Simulated scan of single mutants.
Amino acid sequence: MKVHNIMEVVVRDVISKYKNELNMPCTCDHCMNDVLAMTLNNVKPQYIVEESNSAYIRAVHEADRQGATAILTKVAWAAGIVGQNPRCYNMKNPSDH
């Protein structure tokens, strides 16, 4: 059996779209994955079985202004926490870069 949490794709899209506006001190893959994980832990998962339903569900989330705003708010919250407490190598040893 294989299922997929479509919210992972939705949240990734939001992070990509607003990456520059998040004002994070580091936007490396590790920091962005931390933002993704924190956000996903705070949104309701939506699992799909057929990948063909992916586009429809993503479109519904984008069209739902309140839902889209709620996700963006959670992404911004997670980015704030990660930005204040980066766990990546870049920020732990900034003199090395």
Results as ranks from 00 to 15, higher is better:
12 R>H: 06
87 R>I: 00
42 N>A: 03
24 M>K: 13
48 I>E: 10
21 E>P: 01
97 H>V: 00
65 R>E: 12
35 V>I: 07
49 V>H: 14
76 A>Q: 15
10 V>K: 09
71 I>N: 02
90 N>K: 14
90 N>Q: 09
18 Y>V: 02
32 M>R: 12
46 Q>T: 03
8 E>V: 01
32 M>G: 02
90 N>G: 02
77 W>D: 06
14 V>S: 07
19 K>Y: 03
10 V>W: 11
94 P>Y: 12
45 P>C: 04
4 H>G: 00
80 G>D: 05
34 D>P: 00
21 E>W: 09
87 R>H: 10
60 V>A: 09
22 L>Q: 10
61 H>Y: 15
12 R>E: 11
85 N>Y: 14
55 A>E: 12
54 S>A: 06
75 V>R: 15
43 V>R: 05
16 S>Y: 15
38 M>S: 01
26 C>T: 05
25 P>Q: 07
17 K>P: 00
60 V>C: 04
48 I>S: 06
29 D>Y: 08
75 V>C: 07
13 D>V: 01
41 N>G: 10
1 M>K: 04
54 S>C: 05
50 E>R: 13
28 C>Y: 11
13 D>K: 15
75 V>F: 11
97 H>I: 00
58 R>L: 06
90 N>A: 05
58 R>K: 15
93 N>T: 02
50 E>N: 12
93 N>Q: 08
67 G>N: 09
57 I>S: 05
11 V>M: 12
7 M>F: 09
51 E>I: 02
76 A>P: 03
55 A>M: 08
90 N>R: 13
42 N>K: 07
23 N>F: 12
27 T>R: 14
18 Y>A: 02
85 N>S: 08
54 S>R: 14
6 I>R: 08
50 E>K: 12
78 A>W: 15
39 T>L: 12
45 P>A: 04
71 I>M: 06
31 C>F: 09
84 Q>M: 09
43 V>F: 05
